[in-house]
Amino acid sequence: MIIPLAHLTATGFGPWADGLARLVLEPTELLLVIGLVLLGVQTNRAVSDRLPVLLPLVWLLGGLIGMQLASPLHWAVVRTALLAAVGLLAALGLRLWPPLVLPLAAGLAGLFALVAGSALGGHAGALAALLGELIAIAVLTTLLARALAPPHARWLAIGLRVGGSWITAAALLMLGWLLRHPQ
């Protein structure tokens, strides 16, 4: 019998599949990954090519560290504010200094993974769930980074900024909701 993990939606296919599904069902993490890819592809080709490798590795590291923590981290407000900031950077279309983008992406992904790992820690099947989510992130990042790789046509550049704007808008509303209904 498979005992469902807390913070995971049981798919019925075990913790690995639950982890795969988590990325879709946990929009904060999904939007962070999309936002970081938007930032990466807006910067340059070298950065966008490295993201599909960097993000899953950092996610694994952060998740493993998080799983060692004694209790789950509740950093919803901080995570949502950071998500809004990532979206805003993409919406403004600022070309960040390329050497800054990868460490920034790694830091943010690591932080989010730390929280995700802390939620999974202490449960049987947690590692499988973490690996499942990692695979989902690797696939999503690879597909997005490849599809949106620079150079960009004018309409695509606008679309990237609109995407960033939508991420920030959703995060701001979420932030207001969190402040109104403290967890």
């Binding site: 939508w166 920030t168 808008a169 207001g176 109104r180």
Partner: peptide, 22 residues
Amino acid sequence: IWVLPVAFPLVMAFGGLLGLLG
């Protein structure tokens, strides 16, 4: 044509934040 659709959601969400905070 693209500035308005980028700016509108951002400012609208800011208004939403104000509404949520009362």
